[in-house]
Simulated scan of single mutants.
Amino acid sequence: MTSRIDARLAELNIELPQAAAPVAAYVGYTRSGNTLYISGQITIWNGERKFVGKVGVDYTLEQGKEAARLCALNILAQAKAALGGDLDRVTRVLKLGGFVNAGPDFHDHPLVINGASELMQDVFGDAGKHARAAVGVSSLPGNVAVEVDAVLEVA
């Protein structure tokens, strides 16, 4: 039987990437009680880095939003791995933290991270509404354009 969230992903024509392996001294996720913490996810699709460069220099605002959406897809992939393949166990997206590798004159960081926020709301509905931070930084790992981490409430 298809889960509710898997059916929603199919309805939205969303495919999830493979959960990325950590590239340094950390794990992709940790869980404490009903809280699942997802490590920062970058713009990678099944092992291939995408959106390498700075928003406002190499990428437009809209492309930055696409990069943030890709980070959110990776968050879902990590959550699915953490929850034994069952995203229906996510009861609430509590918080997203967004980091934008931005040029010095770029100031629309919140609009970029909307790419991740909107995906969570599209997938989880009201349970996808969350607290958030969106900040600009001078660089990110691998010079990717965006990184997003998450805190989820799970059953």
Score class of each variant (00 low, 15 high):
G28P: 09
Q78F: 04
I5A: 01
E118D: 15
G40F: 09
R49N: 13
S39P: 00
L9F: 12
A134W: 09
A116R: 08
A131Q: 14
L9W: 09
S39N: 11
M120K: 11
V137K: 14
G40P: 15
G28Q: 11
V123D: 00
N13T: 01
L152T: 05
Q18S: 11
F51R: 02
P17G: 04
L119R: 08
G98R: 07
L36F: 03
H109G: 01
D149V: 03
S117V: 03
E147G: 08
G28N: 14
S3V: 02
T2A: 14
G136M: 04
G128F: 05
Y59Q: 03
F99E: 06
K50L: 15
G98W: 04
H130Y: 11
D126E: 15
V144W: 00
H107M: 04
V55R: 06
Q121C: 12
V23T: 15
S39D: 13
S117G: 13
T35Y: 14
Q18Y: 00
E11Q: 14
V151H: 12
G85E: 01
G64K: 10
S3P: 00
V137Y: 10
I5K: 06
H130W: 01
S32V: 13
P141I: 05
Q41T: 10
E11F: 13
G40Y: 11
R89N: 14
K95R: 15
G40M: 08
P17A: 03
I5Q: 02
S32Q: 15
S117M: 11
G128C: 10
R4K: 15
D88V: 13
V90S: 03
Q78A: 15
G98Y: 05
A116Y: 07
D86V: 08
K65V: 08
H109N: 11
